[in-house]
């Protein structure tokens, strides 16, 4: 079985309040911030590994995990991070973020799917820079594949023919079974200790969160292949449908007052804020 996992590099999400807007308001700059794999995409890599492992943390996969990205040459670094976790190889399609929209990303992935013929595509539910949450659903439609978005739990049968997915939705959880090939988008809870059950590595729980790369993993990753392609190689239509024409800083809330006692708080809420 082959799983394609998409990965976008993003400016360190824990310092998203430090991104800057250029003077003319046409660009966001993240100078000084570290580039990281989009957290949800890292969860996607973790999910793919858990689906294919023949034992918890065994490192032996019952198939191949391919990490694909669109970005500048430097993204090889984040691809290597994913390869160090245990993915088999990478594909880097060169492209600039500001010349892409979700549909171009989805079209690019569709071309890669045509080329690679995976049984499953796993994507993070959203990139935490653009926060759009669109590409996986678009890809599923372009491919004519079923989608299971916002997956918090995935169970696959031993023969890897389908996935039973618990989707995190408003008001609770929706359970769906999708036959492969399919597109999954993963949510936070997929990396809890029991987020993936592949019915082979059953009975033992994973550690919370995406796995750390071992030293051996990092060494091995250096030798793993990364194919480099262009959007033209893939014949992707690059017409932007959605343009972000300017950026602004949202109005910040200002810090209020620190009160000494709970009594004072209640009095303020009642008399000043008038919310009690």
């Amino acid at each position: 079985m082959k799983i394609l996992v998409t990965m976008k590099r993003v400016a360190d999400p824990d310092n998203a309040n430090k991104v800057k807007i250029s003077g003319d308001g046409t660009q966001v700059t993240s100078e000084g911030l570290e580039w990281k794999p989009n957290p949800f995409d890292e969860y996607g890599v973790e999910a793919a590994l858990r689906i294919l492992e023949d034992g918890v943390g065994s490192g032996k996969l019952r198939g191949e995990v391919v990490v694909v990205t669109i970005g500048p040459e430097e993204v090889t670094q984040q691809i290597r991070q994913c390869l160090a976790m245990g993915a088999d190889r990478g594909i880097l399609v060169s492209g600039d973020d500001d010349k892409l929209d979700a549909m171009i990303v989805a079209r690019t992935m569709a071309k890669l799917v045509e080329k690679e013929q995976p049984d499953l595509v796993i994507m993070g539910k959203q990139a935490v820079d653009g926060d759009s949450n669109q590409a996986s659903q678009m890809l599923a439609e372009i491919l004519g594949w079923p989608q299971a978005t916002f997956a918090g739990h995935v169970e696959v049968p031993e023969d890897l023919s389908s996935a039973t997915v618990t989707r995190e939705v408003d008001g609770g959880a929706a359970k769906v079974k999708v036959a492969f090939p399919a597109v999954l988008s993963v949510d936070l809870r997929i990396v809890t200790p029991t987020g993936v059950n592949n019915n082979v590595a059953a009975g033992k729980d994973y550690q919370e969160g995406p796995r750390y790369a071992s030293l051996r993993g990092i060494m091995k990753a250096k030798k793993k292949p990364i194919d480099k392609l262009t959007l033209d190689d893939l014949g992707v239509d690059r017409t932007l449908q959605v343009r972000t024409v300017s950026f602004t800083q949202p109005a910040a809330r200002s810090a209020g007052v620190i009160l000494e006692t709970v009594q004072e708080l209640v009095q303020k809420l009642q008399d000043e804020a008038k919310v009690l």
Binding site: P13, A16, V19, V28, V128, G130, T244, P250
Partner: peptide, 10 residues
């Protein structure tokens, strides 16, 4: 965008 730290006009 960026967890509400930037507004984009689209």
């Amino acid at each position: 965008m960026y967890a509400g730290n930037v507004n984009g006009t689209v």
